[in-house]
């Protein structure tokens, strides 16, 4: 008479939280690496070349990341469908803002906005990278004898429309993270009188530092060439 983890409501939210933790960790390392593009072009090139050519990262971690992202997305959609079915008739008058914040109620909207942004992000960076390495077979990371990574990144951010889309997307990401971070801890059963308030503060910090840090990086590249 017992549910498996993946076919019970509690189990599914635990899995949602675990994939969320994984994505939080990924996002942090992505941010730290990108931050090097502001500090030193050479260092950024070195790290990017390592990340882009290391077998473990390319053939093990990258597929896990793609799976983790798709799982988080698919599970989010699935849960939303079930949740919507749990209340077929809506209230004529409802005041949800009296007892919960907008971010916690709209994770699907903020999540979909981030996903739409990722389509552009993949078009900008990931697909060209895949083409260069796997179709053209060029793993050198060089263009005209020099590392191409920093130049490619810098060049992308000369367009104000692209920079604006990135900035708006990061605001949606911040909204998503501001609930997601602390919510993931609650979902795996971590709730403590002393530590939960600290986790909530850390979540707010994370949701500000990472997305607005990305905005800073995008604006840095835009303003240093315009």
């Amino acid at each position: 008479m017992s549910n498996g983890l993946s076919d019970s409501s509690v189990g599914r939210k635990v899995l949602m939280a675990l994939s969320g933790f994984f994505l939080l960790f990924f996002l942090m390392q992505h941010f730290v690496i990108n931050l090097f593009s502001v500090i030193s072009a050479d260092l950024f090139n070195e790290i990017s070349h390592f990340m882009g050519t290391n077998g473990l990262i390319q053939f093990v971690l990258q597929p896990i990341l793609i799976f983790g992202f798709l799982f988080h997305l698919a599970m989010g959609m699935y849960l939303e469908r079930k949740n919507s079915a749990a209340r077929p008739i809506k209230y004529a008058m409802d005041k949800p803002s009296e007892n919960s914040n907008w971010m916690s109620r709209n994770m699907l909207i903020t999540g979909i906005m981030v996903m739409l942004f990722l389509a552009l992000h993949f078009y900008d960076f990931w697909f060209p990278e895949i083409k260069t390495k796997f179709i053209d077979g060029d793993w050198s990371g060089l263009h005209n004898g020099e590392f191409r990574y920093w130049e490619e990144l810098h060049h992308k951010f000369q367009d104000i429309i692209r920079v604006s889309i990135y900035c708006v997307a990061f605001i949606f990401l911040a909204l998503h993270l501001s609930h997601g971070f602390q919510s993931a801890f609650q979902s795996v059963g971590f709730n403590h009188n002393k530590y939960t308030p600290i986790i909530k503060k850390l979540g707010t910090l994370y949701a500000i530092i990472i997305p607005f840090g990305f905005i800073f990086i995008a604006l840095f590249h835009y303003f240093t060439q315009n």
């Binding site: 549910n3 079930k82 079915a85």
Partner: peptide, 27 residues
Amino acid sequence: QRVLNMVEQMDIEGFGNCTNTGACEVE
């Protein structure tokens, strides 16, 4: 057995999933 059975019955009844909005504890 209690937690497994009660969660299973909750799911059978068709209640939705918790998304930690915290509205329940306020109300």
